[in-house]
Every structure is written in C-alpha cells, then in structure tokens.
Design a protein around this nucleic acid. Structure first.
Length: 348
DNA sequence: AAGGCGGGGAA
DNA sequence: TTCCCAGCCTT
C-alpha cells in the first residue's frame, strides 16, 4: 500500500460537491479550470453559475461578442482569461470534437501546463499531472522538497515525480485529490495534520516542519500609481473609453482619466483639462466628485481621485475615447474599481 | 528568467 | 500589512 491509495480513499469520502464535478462535459471542466486560475472556489462559484447559464456550451460561447463575455467576467479579474477563453471557444467550435490529449489542449490560448493536464486527466482520463499551487504545497511537504517552486525547472521536477507515482486508474480524481487536500487540510498556514489522510507518509507532517514548505523565493513588488477620473459631459453624454489591448483591464471601460507618478491635486487636474479640451481656464474649475480611494492589487497600489463635472460646449474627442449615453454605462464591462465608483459618476 | 496581469479572503 | 489562491503570456 502507498500514499496514493490513502489519498484517493480520503477523496472519495471527503470531496466537496462542486458543479463541475457533477459533469463529464469537457466544456464545463475546461471553463471551471480557466475560471479558477489564481481564484478561490468560493470566489469563482457564482461566476461559474451565471456563465454556464448564459453560455451552456462551446457554441453559445463562440457565437457571443467579446464584450458580452467580458460582462460575465466583470469583477473577477485577470480579464485576459475571458478573452482567451472566447478565442479558444471559436477554435473549438470549428473542430469536429473536443481534443482529448493535454498536448492538444495546450495549443489553445489561455491553456498552459496546469490547465491542459487538468482537463485531459479529468475529462479524458489521460494519465498526466496537473500541478497548481495546492499540489506544489502538498508534494513539497510530503517529500520535504526544498527546490524553489517559482522556477520553471521545479515545475518539471514535480511533474516528473507525479508521473512516476500517479495511478493509471482515475488520474483525474488523483489530481483533484491532491488539490482538494491542499485546499481543505494542507493549507499554507495552520495545516490540520491531525486529520490528514497521508500524514504518516509526510516528511514535513511527521516532523512538524510544514512551515518550511514550499520554498518560494520570488516575491512580487508592488508599485504605487496615482489615477484621476473625470466626469466630462457634452450634450448629456459622458466621455468613456475601452482600455486598449496589452495592459491592465484590457477591453474594459472607464471614464476619462489621467495617471501620474506624482500626487494628483486640483491644479494637476485643471491643467490636464485645460490642455486636453482647450477650454478657458476659468471654466476648467472643478471639484472633487467623490472621496479618494485606494485600490490595491497584487502588483499595484492605486490612489484614485474623482473630479468634475466638466461641461464641454464644443465637441472634443481625445484619442480612444467615445461619448456614451448615461443609460448605457451599466451595460459596459468594467473593472471592480470602476464598478465601485460608477454610481458617483452617474448621479452627481 | 523575469515581470505583468485582478480581486478577495485570511491571519 | 502579507500571503496566496485549480496560472498564463510576453519579453
């Protein structure tokens, strides 16, 4: 007997009931894997429900407009996932059937080593590992591995190790069991080793040294940036733009704004408005629309202020911006930051 | 190999 | 605050 047996036995009894575990549909399994990238189950669940209701199969998704797909992703973050999902759906819809191997799945946009392994093992029973953050933690503790998990070579090491030990039967359940253990018992802090089904095999668990694993050297450094959004109006319409490809919040909408390294005060905003819209300085006088807020991301910290309103008598359209009817604003896909402050823009 | 890319829950 | 979550892509 070995640890893989005990792990699977535990999984059969203790696994959570999740909607994507109630189906064998590759579309649903693929969607769930994309949606849960760097995202907790609790956070993704309501999105999964709404998404599958509106896009029940790959053809419905492929036929949709990207803006509507983003609308259903609104607030979930990492929006390139939604755009790549949509692109991949178009490719899949043009095929006779879903690919059945991890190698084929990994050719699709947004599908990397983890997701391809997860989909192929769960939906098609291919004997291939799926190493995510949970698996890194469980396996590094189980074997007291001190390799830096932020290095690609360490991922290969873990995949090699798992390929050697994973059972031929139920590879998908085996991969999910590792993730389930990491998510429910073998937590980053305060793991519950007393209820762990494989603690007797675990180097870290037996010695109480769980806090040493996994080893992760790279740490993201957060940069601070200042943003100012302005309510600019012309004949009852507001100035908004769809953020360009390539950067943060790509494809999502926001009101007219400026960004700067330095603090953005009223003088800064008045100067920006004067230079952009060429209106008389005395008419460029504006005030705060709402209190400033701090918006924190993993790699950014934004200090955000809101100004206006600015009424334009002449029609000025900065590059990339459009005039939007206030009633249409609700339909635009927006980042969480913009979702939070849209009300202040509409009412004031 | 390194950095960009969201948002939220937990300690 | 800090960590990290069913990671992927570009440079």
């Amino acid at each position: 007997m070995n640890w893989t047996f005990d792990l699977l036995l535990w999984y059969d009894n203790a696994k959570r009931t999740l909607p994507w575990r109630e189906t064998g549909d590759p579309y649903c399994i693929w969607l769930s894997e994309i949606m849960l990238q760097q995202t907790r189950v609790d956070q993704g669940m309501p999105y999964y429900q709404r998404f599958t209701e509106r896009f029940p199969d790959v053809y419905q998704l492929a036929d949709a407009q990207e803006q509507e797909v983003l609308k259903y992703w609104e607030g979930l973050g990492y929006y390139s996932r939604a755009r790549n999902l949509h692109k991949a759906a178009k490719l899949l819809a043009a095929m006779d059937k879903f690919p059945s191997t991890a190698a084929e799945w990994q050719k699709l946009p947004g599908v990397g080593r983890y997701t391809s392994g997860a989909v192929a093992s769960i939906a098609f029973h291919e004997r291939i590992p799926a190493v995510d953050g949970n698996v890194f933690r469980v396996i590094s503790r189980l074997f007291a591995i001190t390799s830096d998990i932020s290095k690609p070579a360490t991922l290969k090491l873990f995949e090699r190790l798992l390929l050697d030990v994973m059972p031929s039967e139920r590879p998908g359940d085996f991969n999910q069991a590792l993730m389930e253990l990491g998510a429910t018992i073998c937590a980053p802090r305060q793991p519950d080793c007393t209820t762990c089904p494989i603690v007797q095999y675990c180097e870290a668990g037996k010695s109480g040294n769980w806090s040493l694993y996994p080893v992760k050297l790279a740490k993201v450094k957060s940069k601070q940036l200042n943003l100012a959004f302005m309510k600019v109006e012309h004949q009852g319409k507001q100035l908004w733009r769809k953020r360009p490809e390539g950067g943060i919040w790509a494809g999502l909408w926001e009101p007219y704004g400026v960004e700067a390294e330095e603090l953005i005060d009223v003088e800064f905003v008045e100067k920006a408005i004067f230079e952009t819209f060429k209106i008389p300085k005395e008419k460029a006088s504006i005030e705060p629309l709402a209190p400033s807020v701090t918006h924190v991301l993993t790699h950014r910290k934004f200090i955000v202020s809101f100004w206006g309103p600015v009424f334009l008598s002449t029609f000025v359209l900065p590059d990339g911006y459009q005039w939007i009817e206030p009633e249409q604003v609700a339909n635009l896909p927006k980042s969480r930051l913009i979702m939070n402050v849209t009300a202040a823009f509409l009412q004031s």
